[in-house]
Simulated assay, not measured.
Amino acid sequence: MAVHVITGAGSGIGAAVARRLADRGDELWLWGRDAGRARELAARFPGARTLVGDLDEPERLSWALGHQSPPDRVDSLLHVAGVVELGEVGDLTPRVWQKTLAANLVAPAELTRLLLPQLRAARGHVVFVNSGAGLRASAQWSAYAASKHGLRALADALRAEEAGHGVRVTTVYPGRTATPMQEKVHRQEGREYAPERWMTADSVATTILTALDLPPGSEVTDLSVRPAG
């Protein structure tokens, strides 16, 4: 039975991935920002275990994990959680920048660092769910795109560093996906949200599982998936 640690399992892509892995009998460790969120996740995914820590405060994750009992081995660490706040560079405050970079870049780096021993023990797999914004930046997307460009760099460096330990690293770049985050983006853009125009979260989950399920000795490094049409 494979052991997976997943952030962002409360909704959208993270929830779709968690459900697919649970359905095939894998062991889930779901990350919640606080005890209340952890209880919600445990209720939603019976049999799953939870870990608690606020990704907005990556400097406290070591302390948080040190007061819990994480798994002894981790077959995959799936970084799905993220935040977005659109705005022009001239309007974005340091608080927005700091929160975006903390949640989208620094927290994944720190959580990976903390779980590297377990990943090495399992010759495991780290998956970063990035974004098309991690490949190109558009107007009003500076903070989010910067965090995702950084996430790409983190993945590339980690892959080079951990290859000798047998740890695989994959970055997935989804295009627009019908999730609560996408609904928020549409509100910020002042556009009507029509979920049927975009990919389903389950489509992205299929992409992620494809990377996870490759036989040993092979690795998907970067994978983009876009809405058709």
Rank of each mutant, 00 (worst) to 15 (best):
A153R: 11
A178C: 06
L135H: 10
G132H: 04
D202Y: 00
G132I: 12
E183A: 15
R159D: 06
L158S: 01
Q140N: 14
T200V: 02
L115D: 09
S147F: 08
N130Y: 05
Q118P: 04
L151K: 06
Y173P: 02
E183I: 05
L119V: 01
D156L: 11
R159S: 06
A157W: 03
L111W: 00
A133W: 14
S131K: 07
S142L: 13
L135Y: 05
G166K: 12
G166H: 11
T112H: 11
M181L: 15
R191K: 11
R120F: 05
P174L: 05
L151Q: 12
P117A: 10
A205M: 09
V129Y: 03
L119N: 06
G132F: 00
D156K: 07
G175Q: 11
Q188I: 00
A137D: 14
A155E: 08
E162M: 11
E196Q: 13
A137S: 15
A139D: 15
D156N: 10
P195I: 02
H186G: 00
R191P: 00
F128E: 08
H186R: 02
Q118T: 06
E161S: 00
R123S: 13
E162I: 00
A145M: 03
V172N: 02
G190R: 10
L116E: 08
E162G: 01
A157M: 01
T171A: 15
L119D: 07
Q118R: 15
Y173S: 03
R187F: 01
A121L: 10
V129E: 02
W198R: 00
D156A: 13
V129A: 03
A122H: 12
T177M: 07
E183Y: 07
W141I: 04
R136T: 14
L119S: 09
A146T: 15
R197A: 06
R113M: 04
D156H: 08
E189Q: 10
F128Y: 13
M199H: 02
E183G: 03
E196C: 00
R136F: 14
V126C: 05
G190W: 15
H165G: 07
F128N: 12
A145T: 01
A121V: 09
V167R: 02
